[in-house]
Each structure stands twice: as C-alpha cells, then as structure tokens.
C-alpha cells in the first residue's frame, strides 16, 4: 500500500510517501494506525494523538477506524486542514 503524509506530519516523519508491505493482521484503518505506532519514536509520537491525525483512503476522508482496508491503494495521513 502507498502511504502519503502532509504538513507537520510529513516533516515529523521525514517522508512524503512510501510503499509498504502490511502484515496480514492489518485489516482495518484502526489496525493500520496501531501498526504505524510500532515503527519507531517519530511514528509513535505522531500517531499517539490518534484523533489529531486525519486519514483519507484513496482520496476520500474516512473517520471510522473500523473501515476495512481491502482494495485500498493509497492511505494519506495529515493534520486538520487549514485551506481557504
């Protein structure tokens, strides 16, 4: 799956995007966030405040952490938006 990052989350994790091989146990968005927390200090710090991190799956906002990941090609992580 392709993971992309924006704003201060991109800066904190020091990457704009990456291709990852997810463990088979990662089935939902909640699982993906839990998995991200295991990837080192920077990830733990970013994903600790779960509700601050907003998620889009294949370019659509998803709030529900039980959303299944099957068929999803791209997951994006970003803080609350400040456009306009």
């Amino acid at each position: 799956m392709k993971l992309v990052y924006f704003s201060w989350i991109r800066e904190r994790l020091d990457r704009t995007e990456e291709e990852v091989e997810l463990p088979e146990t990662v089935a939902t968005l909640g699982d993906l966030i839990a998995w991200q927390k295991t990837r080192g200090e920077a990830f733990e710090a970013v994903f600790e405040h779960d509700r601050v991190v907003r998620v889009a799956l294949d370019h659509a906002h998803v709030d529900d952490r039980s959303e299944p990941l099957e068929g999803v090609r791209e997951a994006a992580f970003f803080p609350p938006m400040t456009g306009g």
Partner: peptide
C-alpha cells in the same frame, strides 16, 4: 476550509522558522 486538503505554513519576515 474544513474538508479540502490544504495546509498553510507561515514564512516569517525575520527569517525565523515559521509555524504551521
């Protein structure tokens, strides 16, 4: 303002590191 994926970062006039 709340749903379109845009983020603003400030560049400060004094050259110091700006904030999101």
């Amino acid at each position: 303002k709340t749903h379109a994926p845009f983020w603003k970062k400030e560049h400060r006039a004094d050259g110091s590191e700006g904030q999101w």
